Simulated scan of single mutants.
Amino acid sequence: MGEYFNCAECKESLYCKKYILNDAKPHCIQCFESLFCSNCEVCQKLIGCTSKDLSYNDRHWHSECFLCTTCSRSLVDLPFTNKDGNLMCVECYSNKYSSKCYACLKPIRPGCKKMEHKGNSWHEDCFTCNGCLQPIGISHFLIKDGKNYCLPCYKKDFSEQCIQCEKPIMTGGVNYLDQPWHKECFVCCECKQQLASQRFTTRDDSTFCLDCFCSVFFKKCASCDRPVGSLKGSNYISFEQRQWHTDCFKCKKCSESLVGKGFLTCKDDILCSECGRNA
């Protein structure tokens, strides 16, 4: 039987010799290594049958050659990564390529959760409020002098208080007579319309939009009951404690304008001379 038990490749007898089966076919050691074994990526020597073959992405290494290209530590039992074809342990990769924590300045290793804001990165545990020192996580925060603050600490330490509602002003706001206001609190004392985007005036420490100021403090037209005049000034007719817009100063009967003309009065009405004579 021995004379027929030959290597499938070179046909030499395998009787009393070591051999390896591949696809149920016996191969002598030399033929098996030449056909099926790979060369080591580092030393370029054959990884023989008696050596441990470590493979990654169709590349092969002797176990003793499977090392970090930076620190030369064995990667057999260590997590590693591939950078431009070079294998590196996670620690070396982090030191060289990972972003540094803005707080502790240590590398943020791959797989670790990190927080990012405006180009800076933090370890999750390092991303804390400068006031209460508690982790901020994904909560809202504000920055003051390059330091991060949670909203409660920022409000407590830095926010101006609205003169009206006495609550912190977090964004925007209005400053008038060196006093801070929320936009929504800085309103006309009559109509409650916000004044931040329009012209306004004050009287007796109260703020008014121009329409309300004219309505409250200006005299009313005897005809239309609207304010006579404006802050810019305007022409009007005045007679016996009554005032009219020039457009409203008309004969009660014929509606002829009486501006610059003689007129008569009949109780509260004003009439042109002709209508007055016929009254």
Rank of each mutant, 00 (worst) to 15 (best):
C126G: 09
C126N: 07
C126M: 06
F127I: 06
C129E: 13
N130T: 11
G131F: 09
C132L: 05
C132D: 13
Q134T: 07
Q134V: 05
Q134K: 13
P135Y: 08
I136D: 03
I138A: 14
H140S: 14
F141Q: 09
L142G: 01
L142E: 05
K144W: 01
D145V: 04
G146A: 08
G146R: 03
G146W: 02
G146Y: 03
N148I: 14
Y149H: 10
Y149D: 10
C150A: 12
C150S: 12
C150F: 06
L151Q: 14
L151K: 13
P152A: 10
P152W: 06
C153A: 12
Y154A: 09
K155R: 14
K155P: 04
K156I: 00
K156L: 12
D157I: 10
D157P: 00
F158V: 05
F158C: 07
S159W: 01
S159A: 15
E160L: 12
E160Y: 03
C162T: 04
I163F: 08
C165V: 11
E166H: 13
E166Y: 05
P168I: 06
I169E: 02
I169N: 02
M170F: 13
M170G: 04
G172C: 12
D178R: 11
D178W: 03
W181N: 01
H182D: 10
H182Q: 08
K183I: 06
K183M: 06
C185Y: 02
F186R: 00
F186M: 01
F186D: 00
V187F: 00
C188E: 01
C188Q: 01
C189E: 00
E190F: 00
E190R: 01
E190Q: 09
